[in-house]
Amino acid sequence: MRTAFGQEFDVPEGYLNTASIGIPPADAGAAVAAAVAGWRAGAGSPGDFDEPVARARAGFADLVGVAAERVAIGPAASALVGLVAAAVPDGTRVLAAEGEFTSVTWPFAAQAGRGVTVTEVDLADVGARAGEFDLVAVSVVQSADGRVVDLDALRAARDGGTRVLLDATQSLGWLDVDVSWADAVVAAGYKWLLSPRGVAWMAVRPDLPTHANAAGWYAGADPWTAIYGLPMDLATDARGLDTSPAWYCQAGAAVALPWLAGLDRAAVHAHCAGLADTVRAGLGMEPAGSAIVAVRRPDAAERLAAAGVVSANRAGAARLAFHLYNTEADAARALDALT
């Protein structure tokens, strides 16, 4: 058991795979276990989960820097991005990064029948090209290699009229940046937000067109009176985009997200990126200020696995990811394996 930033984590030595699956704080895991135990014993009631859903929503809002009324809940990032993609006008021109995670690009590519086009450019060119397009859809931090998009350039493009949708799945929870200005900020919970898989959130600006094409009872102005019949009475804020919550997943998120939101973001960023840059320096790479390191060396994945380092293979590289529960010993183990 490790202690980090005031929480305990049952994380093994050499676990450097948060970019795939985050390890929850012990309290968050216990909350999920208690919720499942109540389910097994027939002691749970649907209304019991309204409070955890609200707490997780508020935690996400605090992490992004917006009001909770601007946050919608969903099961995965692509499902929430799809609510935006379904509402863009016919012929919308979308800009994306080459090799972008498909949960960001495919919801827009699926609108090709309406004349929606998606143009891919190198990540380094996204900021400079943004003003040529109607909407930019891009990850703040690239999943495959940890590169960070030029947020200042995107913010300037937005001031010029380009809509900006950011996927913060690989950044929110460790990266100390302001994304509250974006038209939409989406993130899945099961990586850096240390929540169970099955929960995601999206912060949307009130003037961003969206399409509630997955509307159900939980999107109602009063969900508990919106269970049967018509007419449809959607909530007038972002809750009108909600899908029915994954209760047991939300129980864990209700612990993890408010805790993350209360941390010193700069200290978390310095810790995570500092460990990653230690590995970069040991491998002769330039510092990047990112918590994700892509190692493109022969047999890197095999060497890491043999040393007990848990990593991932992405885009032809061994991917290492350092979160707040990782230590200098984890970085040293990875370097020993690779050098």
Rank of each mutant, 00 (worst) to 15 (best):
R40C: 08
V32E: 14
E328T: 06
A85L: 08
D150S: 09
D242I: 01
R314A: 11
A331L: 05
V126K: 02
L324N: 00
R197Q: 08
A246L: 13
D152R: 02
G289V: 04
P258A: 03
N326R: 10
M1A: 15
P52K: 08
R333K: 06
E302A: 14
A67Y: 03
A130H: 02
G198A: 13
A4V: 11
D176I: 07
V310E: 06
P245G: 04
G115E: 06
S311K: 04
N213L: 13
V177I: 11
F9Q: 01
R158L: 04
A110I: 06
W192S: 02
G91D: 10
G316T: 10
R57K: 11
A221C: 02
L123W: 06
G284S: 04
A253V: 04
G6L: 12
A182V: 01
G229T: 11
R129I: 05
A281G: 15
M232K: 14
A317H: 01
R280K: 03
W39F: 15
T236M: 07
D183R: 15
D167S: 13
S103A: 13
D176G: 05
V64C: 07
A305V: 12
G173L: 12
P258Q: 03
V138L: 12
S195P: 00
L16V: 05
E328Q: 10
A96P: 03
G262Y: 09
V36T: 12
A215G: 01
A34K: 03
A87H: 04
M1G: 14
D222E: 15
V140Q: 02
D222W: 03
D176H: 07
G82L: 11
F5D: 14
V11R: 09
P107C: 14
V295S: 01
C272Y: 06
A288F: 02
D134R: 10
A187T: 13
D299G: 08
G284W: 02
A276G: 03
A288S: 15
P46R: 12
D299T: 05
V295W: 13
A68Q: 03
V255M: 12
D176N: 10
S139I: 08
A305G: 05
D277R: 00
G284L: 06
V295I: 08
R147Q: 09
D176E: 13
W259Q: 10
V177N: 08
R2M: 03
E8A: 15
P89R: 12
A312T: 14
A256H: 01
A291E: 04
A35E: 05
C272A: 14
D62I: 08
D167H: 09
R297S: 07
A153N: 10
A188E: 07
Y15F: 15
A188T: 01
R55A: 15
T169D: 05
L165A: 10
T117I: 01
A41K: 11
G74A: 09
D264C: 00
A288N: 07
